[in-house]
Design a protein around this nucleic acid. Structure first.
Lengths: 166, 166
DNA sequence: CGATACGTTCAGTATTGACTGAACGGGTTG
DNA sequence: CAACCCGTTCAGTCAATACTGAACGTATCG
C-alpha cells in the first residue's frame, strides 16, 4: 500500500476511534476514501491486515451509517465496497438522529424534574439541540449547493477547452 | 437523590459514554445539569456513588471541556462545582477544534496522495469540514440570540404583570 | 510545629469490547 | 449431489481503560 495512503488510513483510524468507532472501521473508511476505489472484502482484509470477520462487521456498520456502500458486480459473487458519494452528509444525518433522542430525553426531564432551575436547564438543552438539528438541515443544503458548484467548476475545465478550440 | 434526577443522570451517562467520554463524567454533568446546584467533590462522590479520585479526574476533564466550572466559596477550602452557564456552546467549540485538526489531515493528504480521485475526495472532505466550522460559528451566534430572547421573555413575566397592574 | 482536611496522583484491578479463528449457512459450479 | 466459495456469526482471547483505594503533597487550623 502507498505510504501516503497508509498514513491517512492510520490517522483516520485514530480519529474515528476517538469518536467511539472501532479502529478498523476508521481504517476501512479512510482506505476507501483515500483510494476512491472499489474493493472486495478480501482485498480490504489483506490491505488492512485484519481478519475478514472484522472487516465484514465493520463494513456493515459503515454501510448502516451510510458512509460506504456495497457494490455488486455482474458475474461475481463477492461483495465490493466503495465510499458513498457524499459520506459527510450521512454522518450529519446520523448525528441528527442522536440529537433527536437527546431532545426527547431533555423534554421528558423538563416536565418531570422537581426543581424549576433544573427544568429550565433541560428546556435550555432541548432548545439548543432542536436548533442544532434545524441548522444542520440548512447546513446540508448549503453543502449541496457548494458541492454542485465545485463539480460544475471541475467538469467545466474540459468543455471550456473544447469551446476555446471551437 | 430524586428518582427523576437519577433517571436523567443515568441516561446522560450512557449518552456521554457513547460519545467516548467516561461514564462517570456523564453522570457528573447530568447531575449538575438536572439540579442546577453547586456541589462539593465529596457531595458528588457520595451522590453518584463513585470514588473521590474518579470524580476529581472526571470533573477536571469536564472543566477543561468548559462544560462545568469550579466555584470557590469564601471561608471554605473545598472545591465546588456547578454547570457552566452555556455548556452547549463550549461543546461545539471543542468539536470545532477537532474538525480543524481533521481539515489539516485532509489538506495534507490532498497534496500528497498519488491518485487524483483520492485527492479530490480529500479536498471534498476538507471543504466540508471547513464549511462545518464556519457554519458552527453562525449557529453559535443564532443560539446566543435565541437564548437572550428566552431569558428576556422569562424575565419579562413579572414586570409585565406589574405593568398590567399599573 | 503537629494534626487535620482536601484534592490529586498512582499502582492495581476489573470490566468492557475489539479483534481473531473456526464453525456455520446459503448459494453457485462441476 | 458433492465440492467449493463467500460472508456472517460466535466463542474465546487479548488489550485498553475506567474506576478504586491508598499514598502523597499542600494548605489550614489548633
Amino acid at each position: 500500500m502507498d505510504e501516503t495512503v497508509q498514513q491517512l488510513v492510520e490517522r483516520m483510524a485514530l480519529i474515528c476511534e476517538k469518536e467511539g468507532m472501532p479502529r478498523i472501521g476508521g481504517r476501512i473508511f479512510g482506505y476507501l476514501l483515500a483510494t476512491d476505489q472499489t474493493f472486495s472484502l478480501e482485498d480490504l482484509a489483506e490491505q488492512l491486515q485484519a481478519s475478514k470477520a472484522s472487516v465484514s462487521t465493520n463494513a456493515r456498520m459503515l454501510e448502516q451509517f451510510g458512509m460506504i456502500r456495497r457494490v455488486s458486480v455482474l458475474g461475481d459473487r463477492r461483495d465490493f465496497y466503495r465510499v458513498q458519494d457524499d459520506p459527510w452528509e450521512q454522518m450529519l444525518r446520523v448525528a441528527q438522529g442522536r440529537w433527536r433522542e437527546m431532545v426527547n430525553v431533555f423534554n421528558e426531564a423538563a416536565e418531570r424534574l422537581p426543581e424549576p432551575a433544573g427544568r429550565a436547564r433541560m428546556d435550555d438543552a432541548a432548545r439548543f439541540h432542536t436548533l442544532l438539528i434545524r441548522e444542520c438541515d440548512a447546513l446540508i443544503d448549503r453543502w449541496h449547493a457548494l458541492r454542485r458548484q465545485e463539480q460544475a467548476d471541475a467538469g467545466a475545465e474540459v468543455p471550456l477547452r473544447r469551446a476555446a478550440g471551437a
